[in-house]
């Protein structure tokens, strides 16, 4: 009996990225009536959600320097903390709550909405030190926040929002 890790080499053409392996992706276009304010939500099988900018977001077309502000005026998203197994004490989010604001060099800006009612678990702190991740790796290390919502809301939104196939089909038109 001789087993080695090398007997487990998979077919590399089937390789899927970390987020594609473990998350179901959903898309919302033109959030809040703003054109190309497109958001991606990634649902883990355990109901935990990651929020990112969708590849079609107008942010990616703008070739300007930017900074990210996690202080919404009311609360500082970076001071969020949760306690215990139940993740108690996270900031409460409504669909229109602002997670952060992106400020461009030309003084224009836009807000990233939560899109869903839930509780904020974690803000991607890497963005503070490396804001470029937002542009370079929106699908992975550049995610914005981890959110937890109720089963009912999660399931409802998962079926309401666009699947990757629907999203790609819409983009083509």
């Amino acid at each position: 009996m001789d087993f080695q890790i090398l007997d487990s080499i998979p077919e590399l053409s089937n390789y899927k990225s970390f987020t594609d392996r473990y998350f179901t992706k959903r898309y919302i276009l033109n959030y809040g009536g703003i054109e190309n304010n497109d958001i991606m939500l990634m649902f883990h099988s355990n109901r935990i959600m990651l929020l990112s900018l969708a590849p079609s977001h107008f942010f990616f077309k703008k070739n300007l320097g930017y900074s990210i502000n996690f202080n919404t005026g009311k609360v500082d998203r970076l001071s969020n903390s949760v306690k215990g197994k139940g993740k108690k004490g996270g900031q409460q989010l409504e669909p229109n709550s602002t997670l952060c604001q992106i400020l461009f060099e030309d003084d224009t800006s836009f807000k990233v909405p939560s899109c869903i009612k839930g509780s904020l678990i974690e803000i991607n702190e890497s963005l503070v030190k490396y804001p470029e991740l937002l542009k370079e790796m929106p699908d992975s290390d550049g995610f914005i926040a981890i959110i937890l919502s109720s089963i009912t809301i999660s399931e409802a939104k998962k079926s309401e929002w666009l699947t990757p196939e629907e999203y790609l089909a819409l983009l083509k038109n």
């Binding site: 473990y22 355990n46 935990i48 949760v82 197994k85 974690e122 937890l148």
Partner: peptide, 13 residues
Amino acid sequence: QKTPIRVLHRRPL
């Protein structure tokens, strides 16, 4: 290591 997302639903962060 932050608590991995895959076990985050049942363990504290």
